[in-house]
Design a binder for these strands. Structure first.
Length: 254
DNA sequence: AAACCCGTCAACCGCAGGACG
DNA sequence: TCGTCCTGCGGTTGACGGGTT
């Protein structure tokens, strides 16, 4: 993985010679940080052309953005609030990870992408295990509870924002201002612990995993974003939910 | 104890678009 | 206008560690 000649696409190809790939060493990190201190986060390709590092400009930039940049939340799991944001913004923007990451201080597009990928895998696995054994009553109940809103579910009104929003987790743009909850409060009754890291919470609380709006009014979908919140169902056979008496709501409700 | 599964993370690849000569 | 270079983005892969069987 190291010392591989790299003439791949994407620019940053000036300089010639052997290009190092693979994990970064502490020495390389230090050199890169020193370069950024002196020159700022730009002209990545000159790092190689000047012989400072045997890395492509792309590799240097990626390392800086994902690991070395100040104020990154490295090694810190996504909080429930951050999960809310990702889920809702993914529903709105689609797989625009870099854009979504701008709403999450300290998170990179790679973080968001990995988070979403893990979530997708988990969903796929859960649906696979719950849907496979045909139409037994028990499994039907499981799937229904996972895919469909709980019967008595009523999206509660948004709590007042003043003084309660976690300021670092309020996010804005031209069209939306979505208040987020103070720590410990519930956006929706019963959904306070919907971190998908807790698989046991999936079945009874499955709704949020499908990116439903969670009562967040004012979100406008962008043209081009998937009708289903995350294109999630695209990944499964069309007869996936044949066993359901009541299939998920039509796409117009997403 | 070993094999297997799964989640997380880091890094690479290919592509698109902008800047510039 | 065209070609080249550079940057940024999204998709994907592989390594690794922890938990489970």
């Amino acid at each position: 993985m190291q010392g591989v000649k790299d003439e791949s696409s994407g620019g940053g190809g000036s300089g010639g010679g052997v290009v190092r790939k693979g994990p970064w060493t502490a020495e390389e990190d230090e050199i890169l940080m020193e370069y950024v201190r002196k020159n700022g986060p730009r002209d990545w390709s000159s790092i190689r052309s000047k012989g400072l590092l045997p890395r492509t400009g792309k590799s240097c930039r990626l390392r800086w953005v994902n690991k070395l940049k100040p104020d990154l939340k490295t090694g810190c799991k996504f909080s429930p609030e951050e999960e809310h944001i990702v889920i809702d913004l993914q529903a709105r923007f689609g797989n625009k990870w870099a854009r979504i990451a701008t709403y999450l201080p300290g998170r990179t597009d790679n973080d968001v992408k990995n988070f979403w990928s893990t979530r997708q895998k988990r969903l796929a696995r859960i649906l696979k295990t719950t849907a496979l054994p045909a139409k037994s009553e028990k499994n039907l109940q499981q799937i229904n509870s996972a895919v469909l809103p709980p019967p008595a579910f009523e999206p509660g009104p948004l709590p007042p924002c003043e003084g309660q929003c976690s300021s670092s987790l309020r996010y804005f743009d031209d069209n939306i201002e979505i208040p987020l909850l103070a720590e410990g409060s519930e956006m929706i009754p019963g959904f306070s612990d919907m971190s998908f890291h807790d698989e046991s919470s999936f079945a009874p609380q499955g709704l949020p995993f499908f990116g439903l709006d969670l009562g967040l009014q004012g979100i406008k979908r962008e043209p081009g974003s998937s009708e289903t919140p995350d294109g999630f169902f695209d990944d499964f056979p069309t007869d996936m939910f044949d066993c359901l008496d009541h299939p998920p709501a039509s796409s117009s409700t997403w």
